[in-house]
Design a protein around this nucleic acid. Structure first.
Lengths: 209, 209
DNA sequence: CTTTATATGTTAAAAATTTAACGATCTTTT
DNA sequence: AAAAGATCGTTAAATTTTTAACATATAAAG
């Protein structure tokens, strides 16, 4: 049952796609789904799905289609969505504010607890009930509110130093939206989300065909 | 010299990382760089870089390090950034407005020409000189202004129909930020940028290590 | 009750991607 | 001028990931 077989990054990525699709199906009162149907909806091959699930021992039994509710539960557990996680946003600029407004994270168990900036003009601004605070208060706030995830939406030049600060105060994961590739030491998870990359990828695709 | 060897998606993704890094180096007056130095900065192996470049015949010669300026030019050409491309944003909500404010696309040659929404209250709002218009004007606007790229930042339920509209009016590429996976027919390039996926990936990483 | 159709788990093959090894070329040093 | 060191391009090996094949189990039909 040990799942320490090293899961491909692409599999993790697809699992969240499956979960996305399954949540939608569930809201439409769909109770069961086959690997073929799910594959078609997500745009992958059915064998890919069964193989992805196989990394975790599989979630069904031969002959029977998957139970949608169970599948959602399993995927949520794998992705760490079964328990709520507290987040903060560092940088209350446009991207930071947009992410604070975004209401699709909350249903997944991600709770935004605070927003931080250096600009005093923004202090006190509230977004969906969450206030913007002085970044000086950040270390204390993280400790007091059991913050696990930090979202960096600052200018590139300070992104790494913000990350270093977050690491020092024992944050568990960093989601970086600044255009600078940020690194974190072993033990702190890191996802760099350079927005320009998506646009460049699209541009290349347009050229190619 | 034909480069139709099928370039891995991961290679394209890395190329934009390289370009990002090289642009920074160039602004620091760095003229030459070895595959080892670049690899270290981007966080990949040097053989990976040489192999990536090899898909296009290579951009240097044995014994000499790469010329930063030339490399930037080559990568820009591959990624289709050598000629400006006009874009529109459909959906003037939080994500749409944040992307409109974002100033890192312009230097790459992506020019935002218009923002569209269905909410009359937003009509006339200007972001960095670009106005919000009625979505009814969209087809005409796209034709008149040679728009090649459409960015979808609408609610999920209308995302596919917006994409269908964009396809009908002969847009070349679609960058979708709605949480719904959108599809486009052969001939129209598509990049789905589901924001939740990044967060779920991070959550899984935190669990794992 | 048996047969047929459907559907998953599992194993193996195939394909794709990454990494390593090595030869060729240029620069620098002696 | 020759030798040593560094560096890229290219080819081959290793690894990873995807796809296919098949055995097994359930449900439905005859």
């Amino acid at each position: 049952m040990l799942t320490k077989k090293k899961i491909p990054q692409s599999t993790v990525w697809r699992l969240s796609q499956y979960l996305n699709c399954l949540s939608l199906l569930s809201s439409e009162k769909c109770r069961e789904i086959s690997s073929h149907e799910l594959a078609e909806r997500v745009g992958v091959k059915s064998t890919q799905i069964r193989q992805d699930f196989h990394y975790f021992g599989g979630f069904g039994q031969p002959g029977c289609r998957y139970n949608v509710g169970q599948l959602i539960g399993e995927l949520e557990a794998i992705l760490g969505l079964d328990k709520p996680q507290n987040m903060i946003i560092v940088g209350a600029g446009n991207i930071g504010q947009a992410l604070a407004h975004y209401d699709k994270f909350e249903p997944l168990g991600f709770r935004l607890k605070g927003i931080f900036d250096v600009n005093p003009r923004l202090f006190g601004l509230k977004i969906r009930g969450v206030g913007v605070r002085d970044v000086k208060e950040l270390p204390r706030f993280v400790k007091d509110h059991h913050i696990r995830i930090g979202i960096i939406t600052t200018p590139a030049r300070v992104a790494q130093s913000v990350a270093d600060l977050l690491v020092r105060i024992k944050i568990k994961g960093i989601w970086n939206f600044s255009p600078m590739n940020v690194t974190a030491p072993e033990g702190v998870s890191m996802v760099n989300e350079n927005l320009s990359v998506g646009l460049m990828t699209l541009s290349h695709k347009i050229k190619g065909g």
